[in-house]
């Protein structure tokens, strides 16, 4: 019983983290058709900002959390400004390759400017404790991941449904030109979408640092690859699809960990991908995707 509950919590916590990252990808893709491979490096910038701040004497975990989120949002906006704006109206493949290039540049800059080796960051370790509920011991980090992700998704839904900019983001996912005809500045809509996407990545960065206690140049890369897979399985560009796909991925992974014998544990990632790809054979458009891609916009 205890074991089953523990694994359920594991799956939910993993899934929540994937959902956050996948949502960040989907927000940007839905309005710009940009497949943002550099999303992992937004997580990276966020983590290295905390690392540097700690090295310079920051001790407050709360400030560190806020810094992580702010740095990620700013990094996302900066990436858009510098690298993605020139290819805004270019074909999807061009944007995708640009983002891939940005990802390589930033990862290597971490190596060049800081170090290729993982660096220890302990400022957020306090988030990762054991909580005891009677006979149950649970990881505080997992509980927080679950609650914070839930609240974040709720906030995102409210933002997209209530605020004018949120409405504009939803409208722009179908028809950017007409959003501009409303007098809403395209640059502002896009910057907001990137900021939102970055903030989601920043929250994920906090969890990653609290769990690992270290930062490394490829910190966000493999997580983002998984989030991409979550997007594909949910239906690329669909926000509910991203959230559902992320959760599903969490459950598949933890399910495999439970089922696989110890000596085959190394095959977990490979099998996860195999399962997802197999699902795509039956639903090429993803679980919640539409046949028509959201990304295709007209002038």
């Amino acid at each position: 019983m205890d074991y089953a509950l523990q694994q359920l919590l594991n799956a939910l916590a993993f899934g929540a983290e994937y959902s956050l990252v996948a949502l960040g990808l989907a927000v940007v893709f839905s309005i710009m058709g940009l497949v943002n491979f550099a999303h992992g490096e937004i997580i990276g910038v966020s983590a290295y900002s905390v690392f540097l701040a700690a090295a310079l004497g920051l001790t407050s975990p709360i400030v560190a959390v806020l810094l992580a989120i702010a740095a990620a949002a700013l990094a996302a906006i900066a990436f858009e400004r510098v690298a993605f704006r020139p290819v805004r109206y270019a074909p999807t493949t061009t944007g995708l390759l640009t983002a891939f290039g940005v990802s390589i540049v930033v990862q290597n800059l971490f190596m060049l400017l800081i170090s290729p080796k993982p660096q220890s960051v302990s400022i957020l370790n306090g988030l990762n404790q054991m909580w005891f509920f009677g006979p149950f011991a649970v990881s505080s980090l997992q509980v927080m991941e679950l609650i914070v992700s839930g609240l974040t998704i709720l906030a995102l839904v409210l933002f997209l449904n209530r605020s004018t900019l949120g409405l504009a983001i939803r409208a722009a996912s179908r028809d950017f030109a007409t959003v501009r005809l409303m007098g809403i500045r395209a640059n502002r809509v896009i910057a907001t979408a990137f900021a939102v996407s970055g903030a989601l990545a920043g929250i994920a960065a906090v969890f990653i640092m609290a769990r690992r206690g270290s930062v490394s140049p490829d910190l966000g890369f493999s997580l983002v690859l998984k989030a991409f897979v979550a997007c594909v399985i949910g239906g690329f560009g669909s926000l509910p699809g991203a959230a559902v796909g992320g959760m599903l991925l969490g459950f598949i992974e933890v399910g495999l960990l439970v089922v696989l014998p110890q000596e085959y544990g190394g095959f977990k990632d490979a099998l996860t991908y195999v399962i997802i790809v197999a699902l795509l054979v039956y639903r090429p458009e993803g679980l919640l995707g539409q046949r028509v891609e959201l990304g295709d916009k007209e002038i």
């Binding site: 893709f29 497949v35 995708l96 594909v232 690329f236 090429p284 891609e293």
Partner: peptide, 8 residues
Amino acid sequence: LSGVAATI
């Protein structure tokens, strides 16, 4: 798959 999904 569509282009993006194929890449992934």
